[in-house]
């Protein structure tokens, strides 16, 4: 194998989960075939990187036989190789291991892997597995002198530029339209047999697991000591204590209130009622 291996990891739009509004029944529905916009942007980035780096472009996906169509279009658009991997797409770590195993076995270790930014935690796991640089959610991805350059959004409209050494795992936003395959290439790709790999990947290695929830229990705030209100009558002291929730509330006249409305509409009613009562809204009737 010669040259840099640049891999476009396309996400197959697997079944989506839908909840029946009437019955609450959860069901799964098959997604429509074809790569997502982010996946197509990743493919285009891979083509450009392969051209810049003088490397080979590989398109790979984890998906069922229906995903062959997507890979044929990648082939027609300019991918040198394609590969379909059969693995569990729901387990991000297993998916990353399967992708790595399949690509390494058939084409050698990848130098750059580009995902769409809708790929969940798979890029992160892959970067960890390969000890590669990781740059996710990129707007731009270019190659200059064997080093990748990336542009990423920051808060408040700012951008940051990244220098990304190889090997690298990147993901890109769907801001780049993919090139259109020529008709002769499309026709040639139609009858291409797509290679399929079922990698035998080891069990999970990373020790971490999902966030664990403890058993639910009632909310019982810790007791706090508040100063005795300065009032002559006992009832005034009780009122002063029970109208406020804490020392600050008492000190400022005590207007904080904890309410537990049953739903959002009731909560909205309470807020409006409170604001009206305190003269913020005027007469809304």
């Amino acid at each position: 194998m010669i040259g840099v291996l640049v891999v476009a990891a396309l996400t197959w739009p697997g079944p989506r989960v839908a909840v029946d509004q009437l019955t609450g029944t959860v069901r799964t529905e098959e997604g429509r075939p074809g790569a997502s916009a982010a996946g197509l942007a990743a493919l285009e980035h891979v083509f450009r990187l392969a051209e810049s780096l003088g490397g080979r472009a590989l398109a790979v996906t984890i998906g069922p036989p229906q995903a062959d169509e997507m890979l044929r279009e990648a082939l027609a658009a300019g991918a040198l190789h394609v590969l379909r991997v059969e693995a569990d797409p729901a387990d991000d770590e297993a998916a990353a291991r399967a992708l790595l195993s399949a690509v390494a076995e058939h084409h050698g270790p990848p130098d750059v892997v580009v995902f769409g930014d809708d790929s969940g935690a798979v890029p992160g796991y892959l970067a960890a597995l390969t000890d590669a640089a990781q740059a996710l959610g990129l707007l731009e991805l270019t190659a200059d002198g064997g080093v990748l350059g990336g542009l990423r959004r920051l808060d408040k409209g700012r951008r940051e530029r990244l220098e990304i050494p190889l090997p690298a795992v990147c993901s890109v936003e769907p801001v780049l339209r993919p090139r259109r395959a020529g008709l002769p290439a499309m026709l040639a790709a139609r009858n291409t047999k797509i290679p399929v790999v079922r990698p035998d990947v080891p069990q999970h290695r990373f020790p971490s697991g999902p966030v664990k929830a403890t058993a639910p229990r009632a909310y019982r705030p810790r007791a706090r000591i508040v100063p005795i209100p300065a009032a002559d009558r006992a009832i005034d002291r009780i009122v002063a204590l029970t109208n406020g929730l804490g020392a600050n509330a008492l000190a400022t006249g005590g207007s904080a209130t904890v309410v537990t409305p049953p739903d959002a509409a009731a909560a909205a009613d309470l807020v409006i009622e409170y604001l009206t009562e305190h003269g913020y809204l005027g007469d809304t009737t």
């Binding site: 259109r180 395959a181 020529g182 008709l183």
Partner: peptide, 9 residues
């Protein structure tokens, strides 16, 4: 003629 590059068939 199609809308693809080299799209005449």
């Amino acid at each position: 003629r199609t809308d693809r590059p080299d799209g005449d068939l």
